[in-house]
Structures are given as C-alpha cells and as structure tokens.
C-alpha cells in the first residue's frame, strides 16, 4: 500500500498521480458520474489529507460529497453566465 515514505521519493507530479490512481476507483464507487472531476478536485488538497482519505472511508465519502456540491455550484455559476 501507499506510504508517505514512498510518496516522498517521487516528484510532486508523480505523488499526485499515485494518489489519484488509488483515489479514483474509490471515488467512482461513491459518485460514478463525475468521478474524473471529483478526483481532480481532491488532488488539489494536501497529500497528507489524501492519504488520510485513503485510510478512512468516512472522510473520503464526506469529501466526495463536499466536492459534488462545489462542482454543482460551479457548474450552475458557469451556465448562468452564458
């Protein structure tokens, strides 16, 4: 599994990629329709938070729900400007 020591050996971009590869299937299980964008959003968080989410399904779920709300608000804002 993914440990902070493994991550620290990788470049910042690779770290996000490694975390994303692990988060994506979990996000997909919670919210299949927007999982690509949700994972993208989550990857903007600190790596330590992402590691915590990988270990705690409850925090992952609440972050995904939060991300969905932010995404929907963002999309609503986008379309109202058009």
């Amino acid at each position: 599994d993914l440990k902070a020591t493994v991550l620290s050996a990788a470049s910042p971009g690779e770290q996000k990629e490694m975390l994303g590869e692990r988060l994506f299937p979990l996000v997909q299980a919670i919210q299949p329709t927007m999982s690509n964008k949700i994972t993208g959003m989550l990857l903007e968080l600190e790596n330590s938070e992402l590691l915590h989410m990988l270990e705690s399904p409850e925090s992952l779920r609440s972050m995904v729900e939060e991300a969905v709300e932010v995404l929907q608000a963002h999309q609503a804002m986008d379309t109202s400007y058009k």
Partner: peptide, 26 residues
C-alpha cells in the same frame, strides 16, 4: 485572473499523466 474557470476542475484520468497540478516539475 479568472480566465480559466470553465476548465476547472481538471479531470483525473487513470493511466494518464496528471496534468492538473500546475508546473511544479515540468
């Protein structure tokens, strides 16, 4: 700024390089 709000958030695609994180390590 605010010119790229439409492109946010970047999409993560498994198996592809992650491009959403800006220019730390080009």
């Amino acid at each position: 700024n605010g010119s790229s709000s439409v492109n946010w958030p970047p999409e993560f695609r498994p198996g592809e390089p992650w491009k959403g994180y800006p220019n730390i390590d080009p």
